[in-house]
Computed example of a mutant assay.
Amino acid sequence: MFSMYRDMMDTCGQEGVMDGETQQQLRLRIYEATIEEFREKGFKFTMDDMARRLGVSKKTIYQVVRDKETLFFDTATYIYEQIKRSEQAVMDDDSLTTVEKIKAILIAMPDSYSELDWRQIYQLEKSYPRIFARVRVMMEQQWDNTIELLRRGIDEGVIRDIPIPVIKTMFEATLEKYMETTVLIDAGLTFDEAVQYTLDVLMDGISCKKQKLL
């Protein structure tokens, strides 16, 4: 009974909220709308843009998130949770070899996020330093599964016995560079393209393999 009363209170007075929609459901819609606005406009979208996309008033949005910085912070956490789910799906896929899992988990991301322009993350450092710091912490925290796979690969003899902190630092520092500077924009590369190149270099090196003579 208390749960039903709480859900009724969550939607009470929220103009434009869908019939029967709880505050948690609205919150998830807000996160997804934030992702879509970022996809189209980067960080320049306004709360008016959000209200139009959601079909609610700004007042309703502010009942869920305090301000735009909170919106970005909470959405970043939401994206991180979705990425972790994608990683777990890779870990649970018994059809993949250890090497295939390592390659997949290093770039694990829901398909709906693959077109986001992650190159713009560097803009957060000046405008929203708290969120930028949060993104860096989340990047640091998402290595548990990867480290487990690297150790397994070394034990199986399919990965060279290179100190894991070296591998981790190489990949992590490269991604941070992509996000903290305009290097990819200047080079005309998308974030996905750059990450794939980085993964190829990490796994296969940069030397051309010699072709066998016929």
Rank of each mutant, 00 (worst) to 15 (best):
A133F: 07
L175K: 10
G20W: 03
V137Q: 15
L106P: 02
F73Y: 15
K44Y: 13
M50R: 08
Q82G: 07
D155P: 00
D111V: 08
E125P: 00
M50V: 04
M18H: 13
Y78A: 07
E176D: 14
S114W: 08
E69C: 07
F171E: 01
I147Q: 02
V195Y: 00
S127T: 11
V166A: 10
I102D: 03
S3W: 09
D74G: 08
M9C: 13
G153Y: 00
K212D: 11
I159C: 00
D117Y: 05
R66Q: 12
Y128A: 05
I83T: 07
E140F: 11
S207Q: 12
G20T: 01
F191Q: 06
L189D: 08
D19T: 09
F43I: 02
G205Y: 00
K126F: 07
A89M: 08
L54K: 06
M9Y: 09
G16H: 02
K41G: 08
I79L: 11
A33F: 04
L106Q: 04
D10H: 14
V65N: 03
L54R: 05
T46S: 15
M9N: 14
A104F: 02
K177W: 06
S114T: 13
Q141I: 02
L124S: 06
T169W: 07
I61Y: 03
S86H: 04
V56H: 04
Q23W: 12
S127K: 12
T174W: 02
E148G: 06
F43T: 03
D19E: 14
E193P: 04
R134H: 12
E115I: 06
C208A: 15
I159Y: 00
T11Y: 10
D19F: 11
D7N: 15
C208W: 14
E15P: 00
P165K: 01
E15Q: 13
F73R: 15
S112V: 08
A33D: 05
D161C: 03
L213T: 09
E21D: 06
I159S: 00
D92A: 13
D200S: 11
L189E: 10
T11S: 15
D144P: 05
Q141M: 09
W118Q: 04
F45Y: 09
V99I: 08
E36D: 14
Y128P: 06
R27T: 14
G20E: 02
A108V: 03
T190C: 04
A104T: 05
K168R: 15
V195G: 03
M138I: 07
M47V: 10
K212M: 13
E36S: 14
R29Y: 03
T77Q: 14
K210A: 12
V56M: 06
M1V: 13
I185H: 11
R85T: 12
I102L: 07
V135Y: 06
Q123R: 13
K59C: 09
F73I: 05
Y122D: 06
L189Q: 12
Y78T: 06
V137R: 15
P163Y: 00
T146K: 04
M139N: 14
E100M: 02
R6E: 10
L71E: 02
L184P: 01
F2Y: 11
L184N: 04
K59T: 12
V201I: 14
P163N: 01
K177Q: 11
D10G: 13
E32G: 07
D111F: 11
T182M: 09
Q24C: 12
K103D: 05
